[in-house]
Nucleic acid binder design. Structure first.
Lengths: 208, 208
DNA sequence: ATATTTATGTACTATTTAGTACAAAAAGGA
DNA sequence: TCCTTTTTGTACTAAATAGTACATAAATAT
């Protein structure tokens, strides 16, 4: 569900001047994203990235400039992907369902594999905080945009009567996001299933 | 407050056979702990650790065997230190105050420096999860012990009438810990102060 | 065709990493 | 004193790291 893989080649219609590219930028970005998502920024070596991206070093540096620049592109790529995922559910099943789906996805991931990847943006913020100013800044902007998006979802849900409107939407969103952030850590730290179960329940209560 | 520094030398009374150690194991463990706490496991290079520990490589390997073994020792050291910190507050000001103090500490750290170290055990669990089985396992045990400790604190607080006893202590503890875990991530991801403020408020509400 | 442009494959480089080897130092025991 | 034991200081090693250099390949423009 969260795996994004492009299989089409989608060559540009008008051929450029020199030798044509033998890879599709979206495809390799998606592959890099999935690798970073599992391994984090620092722990993704360039060689490993080149392998999953199936391109050679020279092509890599010609296209993405550096590992860091690639990562920044991946973070933007991820945010767009995340947002379009949320929007599609929201339009099909409503704003509250969209938010619940993130929660359920994490819980299912935990139950099926015992593992959980969490949100790449949150992971990266945590990892790069205080070490890579530019990445931290980019994450901050994306985070606040997502928080803003959730707030608008909650306002919409409140109008629909799906969520009580006695509390401020902004703070419902904060608590929801914080509980999700905690959930990922609490799972990875080895909490038992009934503990995780109760945390998921508490997150759902926030959206009531 | 969270900084542990040993200044005394505390040499063992009965001198061993060979050349005596020129460092105190507690001192250097404490220095290593503080470094790991800020930088994480992977991002703490041996050279950097040796520098803050003020010992040479040969002494290091003779005493701690490897970077990983040092880290495991540090994790145990941290847990003991964390528990004694909690116990001392609990005995002086009660169980609920002990739990609130962790929360307030994190918030103050955030306000004073814009930075937050979080709990070394949680950080390590997250970082080492699925990569270093032994460390993950050790963290899991410590985490569950701490959760157990918090549960007993809450039960005591319920008996004292400081916390309502309509909810199960175990789940109050889970939600409290999860909110704290989330708080660290949410701060590092760049949430604004009023968002953080509300999350702290929600954590306090859990303990009511 | 031939020049130009862009992409690719391979070899290299400089730095950093955790960990070792080994001689010298500093203590006690005989 | 001189042997044994343990710690310490310095030099080394082998692997991994991100990034470069450069010749070659594959396309278009003239």
């Amino acid at each position: 569900m969260y795996q994004l893989v492009y299989n089409s080649r989608m060559k540009t219609l008008k051929q450029q001047r020199g030798r044509p590219r033998e890879f599709n930028e979206h495809e390799v970005l998606s592959a890099a994203m999935n690798y970073f998502w599992v391994h984090g920024y620092e722990n993704s070596s360039l060689d490993a990235l080149l392998k999953v991206m199936s391109i050679k070093k020279s092509s890599f540096y010609a296209t993405f400039k550096s590992k860091k620049e690639l990562f920044k592109k991946v973070l933007d790529f991820y945010r767009e992907y995340q947002i379009s995922f949320l929007q599609s559910i929201k339009e099909a099943e409503g704003p509250k369902r969209a938010m619940l789906s993130l929660l359920e996805h994490t819980f299912n991931e935990f139950q099926n594999s015992g593992n959980v990847r969490g949100c790449l943006l949150m992971n990266s913020g945590r990892e790069c905080y205080g070490r890579y100013e530019d990445i931290s800044h980019q994450v901050e902007i994306s985070f606040n945009y997502l928080l803003h998006l959730f707030t608008s979802y909650i306002e919409e849900a409140q109008k629909r009567g799906e969520i009580v409107n006695t509390k401020e939407a902004r703070f419902i969103a904060s608590r929801y996001v914080n509980t999700l952030n905690g959930l990922v850590v609490t799972i990875r730290v080895g909490a038992s299933e009934d503990v995780i179960d109760d945390i998921v329940k508490s997150a759902k209560e926030i959206l009531e």
